[in-house]
Design a protein around this nucleic acid. Structure first.
Lengths: 134, 134
DNA sequence: GAATAATTGATAGTTAATATTATAATGGCC
DNA sequence: GGCCATTATAATATTAACTATCAATTATTC
């Protein structure tokens, strides 16, 4: 689906700030804060207000276009709503976010839930890490 | 161990604000924000500054006395450091919280972090579940 | 293309948390 | 137990992340 259609489907008018922000989120596995997006747009010569970035991200989240993560960094980061499930590794030094999945863990989670008489509806797992020093 | 000894062991002078805050955290499974603690103390007639509450909580965290959670609420909450590490399973029907650990998962997490060149500083894992229907 | 309703950007205001600093309390030493 | 250097405190100012306000602008409907 085109960005244009994506916005219309969400009941949002197609405006330049919305298109630009959507494009940024669509870049490879982007995990961006509002500030990140604002800086990228300003650096690219776009005239956009920080308030607009925050507003649009909230709208995107409500429309299900993106999801918001509150990692332990003091600010939220946004990514396009993933079609496939994945977990996150957050580098406490750089703020880098690595996506990963592991079948062994997924399987163990199911087993553990079953052992307690439950089925898993959803889960979240975040590893807070630092680079290994040489 | 007495609260007094706990503070001394952490290299912290025994002061009234620290004792009061520690007592609050020790109340049954307390998950409190700095603001929560401040309000409780003020309501109890204690003369304490909000800055002191934040400072003491940070010191407690550094001393390993309590841990900090960044839930999706916009503010951090603190709880006494649990004696044993555990993850959480939350029942979406009843709100029940089941604590569990799994060595296989813990081990896989370490391996995955190492594969990406990181060491794990901390992690959080929550399974959102529902009872299996018969 | 005009009407109108939504959107934007600038700015001011909030909220959670941290830094500063003058005053006060703590605890080792005698 | 009292002295007193050190540490802690409370009040205040400051910062960072985010939200609300509002006049000016822009997108969709007709």
């Amino acid at each position: 689906m085109t960005d244009d259609a994506e916005l219309k489907k969400a009941g949002l008018k197609v405006t330049l700030p919305r298109l630009r922000i959507l494009e940024l989120l669509e870049e490879d596995q982007a995990h961006l804060s509002a500030e990140d997006i604002y800086r990228k747009l300003i650096d690219a010569g776009e005239e956009v207000g920080l308030a607009t970035v925050y507003r649009v991200l909230t709208q995107f989240e409500q429309a299900g276009i993106c999801i918001r993560h509150n990692f332990e960094e003091g600010h939220a980061v946004y990514e396009l709503t993933p079609s496939d499930h994945h977990d996150h590794m957050v580098c406490l030094d750089t703020g880098d976010v690595i996506e990963f999945t592991d079948d062994v863990i997924e399987e163990r989670q199911k087993i553990l839930a079953t052992e307690h008489g439950y089925e898993i509806i959803d889960h979240s797992m975040v590893l807070y890490v630092k680079p290994i020093k040489k």
